[in-house]
Amino acid sequence: MNLFKPDKAVEEKEIFETLLESENVTIERILSPPDTVTEVSQQHHDEWVCVLQGSAKLEMSDREITLYRGDSVLIPANTAHRVLTTSHQPHCIWLAVHIL
Rank of each mutant, 00 (worst) to 15 (best):
I27E: 15
E47P: 00
E28A: 11
Q53W: 00
H45D: 15
S72I: 00
E23T: 14
E59C: 09
V51M: 08
E23F: 10
I27Y: 06
Q42F: 04
D35N: 09
P34A: 09
H44A: 01
L67N: 08
P34Y: 10
R63H: 04
Q53D: 00
S61G: 13
R29K: 15
D35T: 02
G54T: 02
T26K: 04
K57Q: 10
G54N: 06
Y68A: 05
M60S: 05
R63Y: 10
D62F: 08
N24S: 12
R69D: 00
G54S: 05
S32I: 03
L58G: 09
E39S: 05
M60C: 13
W48C: 11
M60T: 05
D46R: 02
P33Y: 02
L31K: 09
R63S: 01
T66K: 10
I65W: 08
Q42S: 00
D46L: 00
V37D: 01
S22Y: 01
E64V: 01
D71G: 06
D62K: 09
I30Y: 03
S61E: 03
Q42C: 14
E28D: 14
R69F: 06
V51C: 07
I30G: 09
D46N: 06
Q43L: 11
Q53R: 00
V51L: 01
S41N: 10
D71T: 10
V49T: 11
I65K: 00
S32E: 08
H45F: 12
T36W: 00
Q53F: 05
L58N: 09
Q53V: 02
V40K: 04
V40W: 06
S22A: 13
E47R: 02
Y68D: 05
N24A: 12
D71A: 12
V51Q: 13
G54I: 07
S32G: 05
R29T: 02
H45W: 14
W48H: 09
E47G: 01
S72C: 01
H44V: 03
E28R: 08
L67Y: 03
G70A: 13
G54H: 04
L58R: 14
P34V: 00
I65F: 00
S32Y: 06
V37Q: 02
M60L: 12
M60E: 15
E47Q: 03
K57E: 15
I65D: 01
R69A: 04
T26L: 14
Y68H: 03
T38G: 04
S22C: 09
G70S: 11
Q53L: 12
S32M: 05
N24V: 12
S55H: 13
S72E: 15
Q43K: 12
T26Y: 12
E21D: 08
C50N: 11
M60V: 04
S61A: 13
T36E: 02
L58K: 14
E47Y: 07
I27F: 11
D71K: 15
E28L: 15
K57A: 14
E39D: 14
S41F: 06
L31Q: 07
N24H: 05
V40I: 15
K57M: 12
A56F: 11
V40D: 15
S32A: 13
S61T: 11
E21H: 11
C50T: 14
S32D: 08
N24C: 04
W48Q: 03
G54K: 01
H45A: 09
Q42T: 13
S22W: 09
E47V: 03
D46E: 10
S32K: 04
T36M: 08
V49I: 13
